[in-house]
Design a protein around this nucleic acid. Structure first.
Length: 425
DNA sequence: GCTGGATTCCACC
DNA sequence: CTAACGGGTGGAATCCAGC
């Protein structure tokens, strides 16, 4: 007889360990057991650390310039983000997980929830098999947390990471939970962030067990409905189910500049580039924007220069994913927002209220249909697929891109670019 | 007061 | 030599105008 109660829900959270670093290691085995980090775009902050790098005290999200010296002294291997590579490896991991369990939800680039209670299996044995398969076939180490709710499964995966030998942690037994909750800090609970944690500490609530013992009327009044959901989940009552594949509502594209930008022409180039990326993404998903928002701002951190931030949006007469149209509108918006004599750090474009491209809502006053540029856009996408990214683009994007991001240490895109395949010499 | 829409806050990876 | 800090998502709470 299995220890689980009849009818009890059971979720597994499969989480890739140090995901971006693990991806780099697949193609560069010399990195194994060496301190290694991956930087955010623009080589700004640390977004992934190997265990060795964690031991050196390098923090998640830490700005790189603060640890540059430490890295040099300890021969830390440093990489710029290589999202094409990570996305491709992620796809392989998720496909493998779907083979094990169709009832699953991709939660992020490196995590997925599986619903296991409807399968007649020994859950822990099954988890072991999943872990071994992903390691053997893809070369990515994962941790797996098992529990009756998603929030507890998240907690279990945390604990699984501390247990390096098995990498699996089972929190289905109520007795086991009772002990664990006494030493699990509230700030590590899924859904409780920095602000909430600070307030909890202020109310002398530090450990999860203390949180669960706090009267729910008080918690609801002070922290809202989200907190009630968290408490229920911690008590083993499942409130969060696997989510449907949610349709995207907005697409945002923005980057910080490699160095401050002051001229309107550079900003227009950048905005054009982001429009092209966003529209391409929309066409790929077969959706159209009903509005577009443009924003720009100076650095949040530079206290010596004046701060400026602005945004504006325009509703489209007809939904569109046409790069030419969207870029034209974005240019108009940006020209209105632009003020000279500022050091700009970032501009961004957001396609708003996306809807299925097949939904046609003919405008009463505009008789023509809005497929004008469909053929051109299709051509653009096909050419760029065939001849490589950015073979064909609008002149407005510019060719120099003096503003573009820093990405000095990116590894080759081994799996997605023919000319960057791994060479065996 | 009530409503819906816009904006801000918070959290996550 | 100095200055240097991501890019997305989504949901809830809150604000505010118009009734």
């Amino acid at each position: 007889m299995l220890s689980t109660r009849f009818n009890q829900t059971c979720f597994a959270l499969v989480d890739c360990n140090n995901f971006f670093v693990s991806c780099e290691r697949i193609f560069n085995p010399r990195l194994i057991n060496k301190p290694t980090i991956v930087l955010s775009s623009n080589d700004g902050c640390v977004v992934a650390r190997s265990n060795e790098a964690k031991l050196l005290g390098i923090k998640m999200g830490q700005p790189y310039f603060q640890i540059e010296k430490l890295c040099r002294q300890n021969h830390v291997h440093i990489f710029s983000s290589n999202f094409e590579l990570y996305g491709d490896i992620s796809k392989r991991v998720m496909t493998t997980l779907f083979d094990f369990c169709l009832d699953s939800e991709i939660y992020s680039i490196d995590e997925a929830f599986l619903r296991l209670d409807k399968m007649s299996i020994n859950v822990v044995e099954y988890a072991k098999k999943i872990k071994e398969t992903i390691w053997k076939n893809i070369g990515i180490p994962v941790s797996i947390g098992i529990a009756p709710t998603k929030t507890l499964a998240k907690m279990a995966s945390h604990l699984a990471k501390q247990n390096l030998t098995s990498g699996i942690y089972d929190l289905r037994s109520e007795n086991a939970r009772e002990i664990i909750l006494q030493t699990f800090p509230v700030e590590e609970i899924w859904g409780i962030g920095k602000q909430t944690a600070t307030q909890l500490h202020y109310s002398k609530i530090h450990m999860t067990s203390q949180l669960c013992a706090t009267p729910s009327t008080y918690l609801k009044k002070r922290f809202g409905v989200m907190m009630m959901r968290i408490i229920n989940e911690l008590n083993g009552i499942s409130c969060l189910s696997l989510e449907e594949v949610h349709s995207v509502k907005n697409i945002m594209c923005s980057r910080s500049f490699g160095k401050p930008v002051t001229t309107l022409s550079d900003l227009l180039e950048a905005v054009s580039t982001y429009c092209a990326n966003a529209c391409k993404k929309a066409r790929l998903q077969k959706i159209k924007a009903q509005g577009i928002c443009v924003y720009l701002r100076t650095s949040l951190f530079n206290k010596t220069k004046p701060f400026y931030s602005a945004s504006d949006q325009k509703i489209l007469l007809l939904p569109s994913n046409d790069t030419v149209l969207i870029t034209t509108i974005a240019h108009d918006l940006l020209k209105k927002l632009f003020k000279s004599n500022y050091d700009y750090q970032k501009v961004g474009v957001i396609l708003l209220n996306l809807i299925d491209e097949n939904i046609k809502q003919n405008d009463l006053f505009e008789n023509k249909n809005n497929d004008d540029n469909k053929i051109l856009m299709n051509l653009l996408d096909v050419m760029n697929e065939q001849w490589g990214k950015k073979s064909l683009f609008l002149a407005a994007e510019g060719t120099q891109k003096l503003w573009s991001v820093k990405s000095a240490r990116r590894s080759p895109r081994y799996t997605t670019q023919w000319n960057e395949l791994l060479l065996v010499l």
